[in-house]
């Protein structure tokens, strides 16, 4: 399988995962007023997911063969 092509497909897959995690109904699961590690749980969820997406992007594009 073509590497360039595969890279594009992996990125699209991460995009799809991100789109799912950042939308209803997943978001509503974290829509609670409680604190987690002293921070609002929704806030923690969004930023951790966000960081994970970025890490995946970086892993996909910067990986040396």
């Amino acid at each position: 399988m073509n590497r360039r092509f595969l890279k594009g497909q992996r990125l699209i897959a991460v995009f799809a995962i991100g789109a799912l995690l950042f939308s209803y109904p997943i978001l509503s699961l974290f829509n609670r007023p409680q604190l987690l590690f002293g921070m609002p749980i929704l806030y923690v969820y969004l930023f951790v997911t966000w960081a994970a997406l970025i890490a995946l992007y970086a892993f996909i594009v910067e990986r040396r063969r």
Binding site: L11, F22, L46, L53
Partner: peptide, 21 residues
């Protein structure tokens, strides 16, 4: 509106995954 400011930055983050295309 709390986290209401975030979609403006999450959108580009998601889009970055499609940039390659």
């Amino acid at each position: 509106s709390g986290v209401g400011f975030l979609p403006i930055y999450l959108g580009p983050t998601l889009m970055a995954g499609l940039w390659w295309f």
